[in-house]
Computed example of a mutant assay.
Amino acid sequence: MPLDPRAILAGRPTARPSVGVVVTVAVSSVCLLVALALLLRGGATGVATAVVLALAPLPLLLAGILALDRLEPEPPDALVAAFGWGAGVAVLLATVVNTAGLDLVWRPMLGAELGLYATASLTAPVVEELAKGAVLVGLLWFRRHELNGPTDGIIYGSMVALGFATVENISYYAFAPEGTLAWTFVLRGIVSPLLHPLCTALIGVGVATAALRPRGRRVLPVVAGFAGAVALHAVWNASTAAGLVGVGLAYLLGVGVLVGLGVVLHRDRRRIVGLVQQHLPQYAALGVVEPGDLRMLSSLRTRRLARERVRSTRGHGPARALADYQQAATELAMLHRRYGLGLVLDDEFVARRDPLLLLMGHARAVFVR
């Protein structure tokens, strides 16, 4: 039977989306429709314009996130499910719970204006981060093998948050007071489009850290990730009480978190390259790895240059085979790490390793030929 590179790289019998992913996307789609109906009821204007403005920055933001995912790309169906969860399930849960908290607790206690502020500063950060982070905990439970380090957690967390922020922005733009739509777009679409991704990325880092720990030591990093996300979200929402100074300080905190995540991404990329250099030489005797291959796999730049050279001299098919080889080599190196940490049993290790080696051998025969 012909090899299915997509299935082998995903670690599944076929490349078709799993039942769990299909169900998640379907449920999220229904929740999205219900959430939009709730959010836009009662006085929303210019809904079409609001949708266009909410979607406008999305391609650039998605491109930025996916650019971080080049060394070991995540399965597209899992990324779609994460985005859909944020846009549908998380938005609906947050809308219902935040509205209930405002109507039943904060408004009767503090009045209309202070009740809105309390909801935004106290209730919303907890509810929204829990709703977004639930799918990341689901990944930790059901698809832990996809979480090979903090980069994966940041990618999935950001995808969930982008889905959430896009739908949330539709409601903000649709209810913007007359004459303030442009300012609302500048504030939410240009000045602070990374608020939700930064918050939920912290949960992702915690979940990904937990995925590489034994079962009894997974709770603390997840809790720490949630606490960091809620704190950052709450500081940003509460900062408006201190005027421009408060907003400026909250913005600086967000920049600090962004820089910190950048450092984490850089170190994780170096760690992955180190794993490739450490574990792949043992397969030289099988003919699937040579010293030149290790040099080619040593950075994103050398990988890209190799693909461009093969594409220009041999065509798109061999270039695609080289891309499969690069990803399979990276997956194999990270498999060795999980095995070394005792997270993969012997038979599971062999069942995952052998198809990757088979794919590497076939792919190498194509792009070297």
Rank of each mutant, 00 (worst) to 15 (best):
V245Y: 13
L40E: 08
H233R: 13
L261G: 09
T330P: 08
R143S: 09
P150G: 13
R369W: 11
S28Q: 04
A7K: 11
T184I: 09
P17R: 06
R309N: 10
A48K: 03
A208Y: 00
S171I: 00
N237K: 03
F367S: 02
V22W: 12
R16Q: 15
R311T: 01
S29Q: 10
V310W: 02
R311Y: 07
V51N: 05
A227P: 02
G315R: 10
F185E: 08
L33H: 04
V259H: 03
P5C: 05
R301N: 05
N98L: 00
A63C: 02
F164W: 08
V80G: 09
L162D: 06
E146W: 15
I272K: 06
G317M: 03
A100Q: 11
R352P: 02
R267C: 03
A48V: 12
H266W: 14
A124G: 11
P108M: 11
G292Y: 03
Y251W: 13
R213I: 06
T209M: 08
L194C: 05
S29E: 07
S18M: 10
D324L: 05
Q278N: 12
E290R: 14
G243C: 09
L341E: 14
G111F: 10
G149I: 04
L33A: 15
W85Q: 04
A365I: 00
A176F: 04
T151A: 13
L71C: 00
P197H: 09
G86C: 01
V52G: 08
A67I: 05
L110T: 11
L244T: 15
P108T: 12
L71K: 01
V96Y: 06
V273M: 01
Q277A: 12
V191L: 15
L136F: 04
Y283H: 09
V350L: 15
L36N: 00
T49R: 13
H336G: 07
N98I: 02
H362P: 07
A208M: 00
A321D: 05
T24N: 02
V288M: 06
A161R: 13
G64W: 03
L252K: 10
G46L: 00
V344T: 09
V223L: 13
V23F: 02
R369A: 12
R303E: 12
G111D: 10
S29Y: 07
L297E: 04
G243S: 08
A365Y: 00
P125C: 08
L258T: 11
C199R: 09
G42E: 13
P59M: 06
L136T: 12
R217C: 01
F226R: 06
E74A: 14
P214T: 03
A323P: 08
L202W: 07
V264I: 11
L3P: 06
D268R: 04
G88S: 01
G101I: 09
P355D: 03
A231V: 12
S28P: 05
P281W: 01
A87Q: 03
L58T: 08
V289K: 05
A37M: 04
F83V: 02
A35C: 04
G84E: 03
A15D: 08
P108W: 13
